[in-house]
Design a protein around this nucleic acid. Structure first.
Lengths: 359, 359
DNA sequence: GCAGAAACTTGGATCGATTCAAAAAATAGA
DNA sequence: TCTATTTTTTGAATCGATCCAAGTTTCTGC
C-alpha cells in the first residue's frame, strides 16, 4: 500500500533532501554539483539522506533552466526520422556529427515529424543549443522555421543562395564538371541526367524554365557543371534529357523508364546522387543492359555503398564525414558569425564507367 | 553598433513582451500557447510587440520545467554514438523506434560518450522521458546507471536475468536450435561457433567455465540452443570450438584464423550475429573457400545486408523493427509496470548454407 | 439600467535546480 | 583570550515559462 502511494507521489526534490538533512538548498546543491566545497561530514550525511529517500539526483530540467545550455545539438530534416538510419549519405554525415559530439560529450537530438505542423512544433520545442539542417526537400521551409528559434544553425548542402545563413557544402559546379569530363573523355556523347529536385514536389523531365527558376541552387549548379563541361566536348546539351526525381526508388525508376523510352538511349548517365546511381545500376542490370558495357554511370556523393556494389560505382566523392564534423563544430563553438564553407570534391573512378561503345 | 549590443544582450523573455505590450505574463503566455482564449485585439497587439522586439517564442526550457515532460526518448549505448548509424542491427532497430516516435511526435535523443565517466554524466543529464538501452558490451553498467535516473527504461536484447528490469528480446534458445537443426539436416557434423561476448572485454576460445559464468545470458542461451540441437544429431558438442568475439571485424577474423588453424576445419559455422557471419563470408572467400560449397554459414539477427551479399545469408531473423517499435511504445505509454517480452524468430534459408561435402 | 452570464485578464504560486553575496563557524596566530 | 583569516553554510534571487483562482470587463436579455 505504502509503495503504491509512493509510486503516485511526486518525485523527491533537492529541497526535500535539504530539509530532511537539515541543510540549506545551497549546500544540498553543492553536495551534488561541487562536492569538494562541502565539509566531508555534511556531504556524507546529505548523501545518506538522499540515498535513503530514493533521490534520483538533481533533475536536469531544473539545472537546464538555470544553466541555459542544453549541451545537445539538434539535427533536423523534413524527412521522417528513419531517414537518418536509412539513407547512406545521411548516415555517413551523422557519423561525422557523432564524432564531433562524442569528443565534447554533447548529445544529439533528432528532430523531424510526420507532418509539417508537428515539424514546426518540434523545432520550436526542441531542447538543443543549435541545429544542423538536412536541407533536402522542403529545405527552405526548414530554414525559415529554424530561423525563428534564433538559435545558431547550419544548413547542410547549401541549397540556397541566402547568404545570411551559415552553410557547408561542396563545389557543385566543379564536381559536376569532373563527372562530365570523365565520361566525355571516355568517348561518350549521348547523355542523360538523373537530377535532384529543382523545387519541392516535382518529378519529371525538367525544362529550361524549371532549371532557371530553381529553388535549389545546388541542383542547378550541378547541372550547369555537367553542361558546361560537355559543351566543351561539342555535345549539344539542349538535347540531354534531365529527369528530376525525389532521390528514391520509385521516381528514379520512372525517370529511367522515361529516358530509355526515347529514341536514342544514352550511353552514359550522370546521376546527381549515388543513391540514384545505385538504383540505376540495378534497373539497368535487371533490363539486361551491361554496366559499363552498354551504359556508364557516374554518381555523386561518395557513399560507402558505392564501393561495394557490382560494378563498383564511379562517383564524385564529397568529404561527407568531414562536413558533418565541421557542421557540429560550428554549432558547438558558435561565435555568432555566419560562415559559409565550400569543400572540395574528387572523382573516384571505379567500375561503373568505361569507354563508349563504338558506333 | 546597436545590433552589436543587441547580439550580446540577454534574450528577450516572455515577461519583457508582456511588459512592453502592457499585459500580464499570464495573458502573454496565453497568446502563444492558447491564443483562442485571448481577445483578438490583445492577441494581435502582443504578437506585434513580440515580432518587433524579435522574440523567439516561448523558450522550451521554461515550458519544460513547468510541464515536466520532455516528449523525447533517450536511446543509450556504451558504444560510440556512430554505432547507431554504422551497425546494421542498430539501424533497423532505430528505424522501428523512429516509426513509433514519428507517430506520436516524440523526439529521439542519442546518448553515449567517449568514456565511462562522461557516459554516466550524459545519462544523468539527458533530457528525456525514458530510455531504451542497447545492451551490448557493458550492458550491466548501463542498466545500473540508468536505474539511478528513476525514469522508465527498457533493455533491448535481454542480456540479463534481472527480472526487475523491463526488457524485450527474442527466444534465443529456439532461434539457435533452428539454426543448428538446419545445418545438421543438411548433413553437417563438424561445427564452429562465432560467439558474442559472455562477459565484458573478452575474446578468444570460450571454455565451459566461461560459458557457465556468463554475464550475458543471451549469449549463453544461444550456445545452449546450438548444443542442445546438435546433440540430438549425435554431434559431440564438447569438441566444437566456440570463439568469443567483439562482434566486429578484427576479433572475428582472429576467431576464424584460430578456428581454421586447428586440425579438422569445420564444414559449418554458427554465427551469433549476421555481422560476424558477413565478415566470415568475406574472410572465407578471400581464403579461396567456397560458401556454401566448402563451408556453410548461418547468421543471427536478420539484417537487410544479409539478403544483399553474395551468397545471400541464411539466418535466424528477429523481428527487429517490431522490437524497436514496441520498446518505444513501452516508454511512451509507460504505466509503471515491468514488462518482459519475448518475440519469436524464424529461419530464413538463403544461399550461404548447403549440403555438407561428402567424406 | 441592471442582474447575471460569459469572456477575458491578472498576478501570485510553481516547476527544480544553481549562484553568489553575506553570515557563521572553524582555524590560526599573537 | 582575542583578532585575523580561512573555510563552510545560508537564504534570497534567478532562470523562463505555465497554471489557476480570483478579479474585471463585456455582453445578454428583460
Amino acid at each position: 500500500m505504502a509503495s503504491l502511494l509512493e509510486g503516485q507521489a511526486r518525485p523527491i526534490r533537492l529541497a526535500d533532501i535539504a530539509k530532511a538533512a537539515g541543510v540549506s538548498h545551497g549546500t544540498a546543491s553543492n553536495v551534488f554539483s561541487r562536492p569538494e566545497i562541502v565539509r566531508a561530514e555534511v556531504r556524507e550525511r546529505v548523501k545518506a539522506v538522499a540515498e535513503q529517500m530514493g533521490y534520483a539526483g538533481p533533475d536536469p530540467k531544473g539545472r537546464l533552466l538555470r544553466a541555459g545550455k542544453v549541451n545537445a545539438i539538434g539535427v533536423a530534416t523534413t524527412e521522417p526520422l528513419s531517414y537518418f538510419f536509412d539513407d547512406p549519405f545521411a548516415r555517413v554525415m551523422m557519423a561525422g556529427i557523432s564524432e564531433a559530439c562524442d569528443a565534447t560529450g554533447a548529445g544529439i537530438a533528432l528532430v523531424s515529424a510526420a507532418n509539417q505542423e508537428k515539424l514546426a512544433w518540434n523545432i520550436q520545442s526542441a531542447l538543443v543549443d543549435g541545429f544542423i539542417l538536412f536541407c533536402i526537400e522542403g529545405g527552405s521551409r526548414l530554414v525559415d522555421l529554424t530561423r525563428e528559434r534564433r538559435l545558431p544553425f547550419v544548413a547542410l548542402e547549401l541549397g540556397f543562395q541566402d547568404e545570411t545563413v551559415s552553410a557547408i557544402g561542396v563545389d557543385n559546379v566543379a564536381g559536376a564538371r569532373l563527372a562530365a569530363h570523365h565520361l566525355a573523355e571516355l568517348g561518350h556523347r549521348r547523355f542523360a541526367v538523373l537530377s535532384l529536385a529543382f523545387a519541392d514536389n516535382r518529378t519529371g523531365f525538367a525544362t529550361p524554365e524549371i532549371v532557371r527558376g530553381a529553388l535549389y541552387t545546388g541542383t542547378r549548379d550541378r547541372l550547369a557543371g555537367y553542361f558546361e563541361e560537355l559543351s566543351r566536348f561539342g555535345v549539344d546539351t539542349a538535347k540531354i534529357p534531365v529527369y528530376e526525381t525525389e532521390n528514391e526508388v520509385k521516381s528514379t525508376r520512372a525517370g529511367l523508364e522515361a529516358i530509355f523510352a526515347e529514341g536514342e538511349p544514352p550511353t552514359a548517365i550522370l546521376a546527381m546522387s549515388d543513391r540514384m546511381a545505385l538504383i540505376a545500376i540495378d534497373w539497368l542490370k535487371a533490363r539486361g543492359l551491361s554496366v559499363p558495357g552498354d551504359v556508364s554511370i557516374v554518381g555523386f556523393d561518395g557513399v560507402p555503398d558505392g564501393a561495394l556494389c557490382t560494378p563498383p560505382l564511379t562517383t564524385i566523392a564529397q568529404p561527407i564525414t568531414e562536413i558533418g564534423r565541421r557542421a557540429a563544430r560550428m554549432i558547438l563553438d558558435h561565435d555568432g558569425a555566419v560562415r559559409r564553407e565550400t569543400m572540395g570534391v574528387e572523382l573516384i573512378a571505379r567500375g561503373s564507367t568505361g569507354p563508349a561503345r563504338k558506333g
